[in-house]
Write a protein that binds this DNA or RNA. Structure first.
Length: 970
RNA sequence: GCUCGAGUGGUGGAAUUGGUAGACACGUUGGACUUAAAAUCCAAUGGACAUUAGUCCGUAUGGGUUCAAGUCCCAUCUCGAGUACCA
């Protein structure tokens, strides 16, 4: 039993860490103030989804890095905002609810509590008074509120920002929509002020919906009738659902969409002013996919079969190569375009319809994955070339995607490989419009060396000139114009799920109405079952109390609705005539997607308990934006793009002062697990790894907790793991069973998960924090190996012994020696440089070197040991606090000023020069640093080893770089 | 296919503007202390040759630039991440 004395003298991390974690909580040490004379610093982590599996050692990596930075900034005199919260809406909780009937709110609460316990044990300096949870009605009230703001806005291209929909109505009333330059639906038709005034209220709402930044639209989704739900592309494998293997069909559904495409150019431009990793910026750039070119309209030539009175058709295409327009030998349409049915001739109808049916069966992903197979069908129709007036056959082909551009291309086989392959396959002519280029084998797509030929008025021109000239000609003809196209599509914002934010929306006459801010939040209703309804409605269709009473402004029971009608597809419609509804209307049944709650949480942290506003202007004006954001790169084109979009929208509305929410972003790398394998032969025996050569064995994952640092298996533990292993035979080598090891993603199913709890228990949080950083560069992925933690744990013990030994406190008031000061200041310098570059692994080594040197120097001087404790504090805060109090200080070390580096302690008078011969280092010699080049050369030449190296030769050249190196050539 | 990133001992990884390759750890080996173990401390540890002195090889591969290359240039290979018929 340890005496009081040994607890005092030994590094008892368990007691120390518990003590300081309690101190920080009791004293609210890390509470950030919204009023401060100090400069602000906002250090943010991507908040986690609280899964049932808890944290493994990979999760805290980024949190430790940002915590070190946050603590460092406090030492540097900043008012630091370092919050944490939970992205607590999501599918796993809902799945669990479906299986067990347990309410997702309960499992979510349980998981959050477990996360909190695990996070607390690691000693983070989070300001927990600012915690947010996306599934908390007090939080999602503001998610709903932002949605309403988006609904009430439209995008004005002339001012290049979002503006109030009310202002748009004023314009409509005065002059219709013809003078408006807005981002809106493609099918928006022109109307005058007079037309507008003549529209019914419903017609007006329909028109406005085409302009709103969030709007209802028919979207194609992957519908799985058996599961009664919509699936994401990656939930579909080989055309059937991943869960259950049910068939999936493409289906059009009315869903909320976000007009993010309005911000495409600004999202692109904004990348230039933020310090984010280049790969992440690249992937956003590719995702937005800007391409410059022209839109060209082709007239479809009337066919004899055309029904009388049918309007003439036009096909609009986008092309990046309008200069090659004289090389067009056919056009290709996406099979799903409605236009296809309208232009197909009777003779071609069977072939075309068969083809459309065949492509509908393939998922979008299948179609995209299969690049090699060329398929298509001729419609029998022809388009007219805008200049040559020649007829151009119109084909359909699944290599043209309905969702990109207009879903139609002008095919130039000599200039585009896909068009070339298509033309070859179907024996379509391939006219050559390039000067001096052979296209008998493949298409020619190099813009830089293009000289146009065989193209009427474009002959002899290069790509740039031809493009300019053809766009002018198209404009003169009224059949085209220069255009910039973006790949970025509007984002679907509806999910047929239960565990998400409800929309603050009810429907009158099928038109969506927003609920006033006063009555928010609209809380998730209770449901019996979390599955879709029998009629195929989303889970909220099961709610019995889910209607909006506009008289009393509250959610009421569905009985208050007079009737609910369903159409053939099972969709609920509010076909209640205005007499019968008595002011009660059906509420939206969809919920918001996972990214809704995470798109503005960083701003909410600034003023998380504000009930009147999303945040006060005072708070946002003080905190401004995120100074450092750390998180995984997997969010590159999801969360990080949507958040930037919402931020720009909020900026347009004057709600936030910055149009980019995070100045600096770092992607932490993944920590991989080192899986362990045992090898079972056909007889069921387990054979030690090195005896498996030439044997037929199957590797089986063994839990890594059964394996020691020497890869030896704890056979008893393994036998007790599973009943089927109870009586297994083990064939040993040298009396041991050795496992095989392999680096894989850390995952429960691979039994290679290491939990931070057991590490904290055995070695302490400070050891864990240091080790996670010591593993390697923050941004790289690296394998976890628990055995190595003895390195950082040993360092902490060594650090402790610098201050305390068996006789108690060691430190003295003795003046520091020159060596002591040199060691200290070398460390300050290196650590500050490392933190500035987020190179935390090298600063841990630097601490080790520092402590090794001070131990050798037998340093006991408080003048060294006090600043050292502060230096270490961001990395290993518990031990630093304890040492600080042992040094006689009261209160926390957290805001004590960081030691100041003084160059004077590092000034050297001499240098041990490496002396190289023909670039190879042979020996070293100590020389004064102020020695002139000539004197150095003379000294080196006089050295006996130089003569031995030269063996009588005369050097051709002697290179002296003062303070660096000497190289003798010859 | 395209875009981006990375290849250094048995392992994780160091190495400012080109200037002593392998810091710091883990592991391994030997030693001290101990009845023993743990803990701790000391020493060795890229490879080959050599009694020592020392020599040669060595940062994925092949070239190149340079007094000097892990670092710069060209080509190739391998691995990882993202993305995908984008007109």
């Amino acid at each position: 039993m340890p005496t009081r004395r040994t607890i005092e003298m030994n590094y008892d991390f368990r007691e120390i860490e518990a003590k300081w974690q309690k101190y920080w909580a009791d004293n609210q040490t890390f509470k950030a103030e919204n009023h401060s004379s100090k400069p602000k610093f906002f250090a943010l982590d991507m908040f986690p989804y609280p899964s049932g599996a808890g944290l493994h050692v990979g999760h805290p990596l980024g949190y430790i890095a940002s915590d070190i930075y946050a603590r460092y900034k406090r030492h540097k005199g900043f008012n630091v905002l370092h919050p944490m919260g939970y992205d607590s809406f999501g599918l796993p909780a809902e799945q669990y609810a479906i299986q067990t009937g347990q309410h997702p709110a309960i499992t979510t609460e349980t998981n959050i509590n477990r996360y909190r316990e695990q996070l607390d044990k690691i000693g983070f300096s989070f300001d927990w008074s600012r915690e947010v949870r996306t599934s908390d009605p007090k939080y999602y009230k503001w998610t709903q509120w932002v949605f309403i703001q988006l609904f009430n806005s439209w995008y004005n291209i002339d001012t290049d920002k979002a503006e109030a929909i009310d202002d748009l109505i004023v314009v409509f009333e005065a002059s219709g929509n013809t003078g408006i330059n807005a981002v809106c639906d493609e099918d928006t038709t022109p109307f005058s002020a007079k037309d507008w005034k003549a529209f019914s209220s419903k017609e007006k709402q329909e028109v406005l919906l085409k302009y709103r930044l969030t709007y209802l639209a028919e979207t194609e989704v992957n519908w799985c009738p058996a599961l009664g739900t919509v699936l994401a592309n990656d939930e579909i494998v080989n055309g059937v659902s991943e869960r259950g293997g049910h068939p999936v069909v493409r289906k059009k559904m009315t869903q909320w969409s976000m007009r993010i495409s309005a911000y495409a150019q600004r999202l692109l431009d904004g990348l230039n002013k933020i310090d984010w990793p280049q790969p992440l910026k690249d992937s956003q750039t590719n995702w937005i996919g800007r391409s410059e070119g022209a839109s060209v309209t082709f007239n479809v030539i009337s066919t004899q079969s055309e029904v009388e009175g049918e309007k003439s058709h036009k096909i609009s295409v986008f092309t990046t190569r309008p200069d090659t327009i004289f090389g067009v030998s056919f056009m290709t349409l996406a099979p799903e375009l409605d236009l296809v049915h309208e232009i197909t001739t009777p003779a071609q109808k069977p072939a075309v319809e068969a083809y459309i049916e065949a492509t509908a069966k393939r998922s979008e992903r299948d179609r995209m994955a299969d690049v090699k197979t060329i398929s298509g069908a001729f419609t029998g129709a022809y388009a007219e070339h805008p200049f040559s007036k020649e007829p151009i056959p119109i084909w359909i082909g699944d290599y043209v995607l309905a969702g990109y551009g207009t879903g139609a291309v002008m095919s130039v086989p000599c200039g585009d490989q896909r068009d070339y392959d298509f033309a070859k396959h179907f024996d379509i002519p391939i006219p050559n419009i390039f000067e001096g280029v052979d296209i008998s084998e493949e298409a020619f797509a190099d813009k830089a060396t293009t000289i146009i030929g065989n193209s009427d008025f474009l002959n002899g021109l290069c790509y740039k000139e031809a493009t300019r000239k053809i766009i002018d000609a198209l404009e003169a003809l009224g059949q085209g114009e220069g255009k910039i196209n973006y790949r970025l599509r509007d984002a679907v914002f509806s999910r047929q799920r239960y565990w998400g934010e409800p929309f603050p929306v009810y429907y009158v006459d099928g038109m969506p109405q927003m609920i006033d801010k006063k009555y928010l939040p609209i809380a998730l209703p209770e449901v019996e079952k979390y599955l879709p309804t029998e009629t195929g409605e989303p889970p909220l269709g099961n709610a019995t109390k889910w209607a909006w009473d506009t008289k009393n402004n509250k959610v009421v029971f569905n009985e208050m609705l007079k009737q609910v009608q369903h159409d053939e597809d099972g969709e609920r419609h509010s076909e209640l005539d205005s007499e019968s509804h008595q002011g009660v209307y059906p509420l939206e049944l969809n919920t918001m997607p996972g990214w809704a709650g995470s798109s503005q949480y960083f701003n909410r942290y600034m003023d998380p308990n504000n009930e009147a506003d999303i945040f006060s202007q005072e708070a946002i004006n003080y905190w401004q934006d995120v100074d450092l954001y750390i998180g995984g790169s997997e969010h590159a084109t999801g969360h990080l793009l949507y958040s930037r979009f919402w931020q720009k929208f909020m900026f347009d509305k004057g709600l936030v002062p910055k149009d980019e929410f995070a100045k600096k972003l770092i992607n932490q790398g993944m920590i991989t697990g080192t899986s362990a394998f045992v090898y079972r032969d056909d007889a069921g025996n387990f054979i030690s790894k090195n005896l498996t050569v030439d044997k037929r064995v199957s590797p089986i994952h063994a839990d890594v907790s059964f394996v020691n640092a020497g890869d030896e298996l704890d056979i008893e533990a393994f036998k007790n793991w599973r009943p089927e292993y109870k009586d297994a035979e083990f064939i040993l080598e040298d009396g041991k069973y050795i496992v095989g090891r392999e680096v894989e993603k850390m995952s429960k199913s691979k039994y290679n998960v290491v939990s931070p709890d057991s590490i904290c228990e055995e070695y302490g949080a400070d050891s864990l924090r240091l080790y996670e950083m010591f593993l390697g560069p923050l941004e790289q992925s690296k394998p976890w190996n628990t055995a190595g933690i003895t390195g950082t744990h040993g360092f902490l013990k060594k650090l402790w012994r610098l201050y305390v030994d068996d006789n108690g406190a060691k430190f003295t008031d003795a003046a520091p020696t020159k060596d002591n000061l040199k060691t200290l200041h070398k460390t300050i310098k290196k650590v500050e440089e490392d933190i500035a570059q987020f190179s935390f692994n090298t600063s841990v080594s630097t601490f080790m070197i520092c402590v090794n040197e001070l131990s050798i120097q037998k340093c006991t001087s408080k003048a060294i040991l006090e600043p050292l404790a502060i230096l270490v504090s961001p990395y290993a805060p518990h031990i630093a606090e304890e040492l600080w109090s042992k040094l006689g200080h009261t209160g926390s070390i957290a805001t004590i000023a960081f030691p100041i580096f003084e160059e004077s302690h590092l000034v050297e008078s001499s240098k041990e020069y490496p002396v190289s011969f023909n670039g190879k280092m042979r020996f070293k010699m100590e020389l004064p640093l102020d020695m002139s080049k000539d004197d150095i050369e003379a000294a080196v030449m006089a050295h006996e080893k130089t003569q031995a190296q030269l063996q009588g030769r005369t050097p051709k050249k002697v290179i002296v770089v003062p303070g660096k190196i000497i190289n003798i050539v010859g």
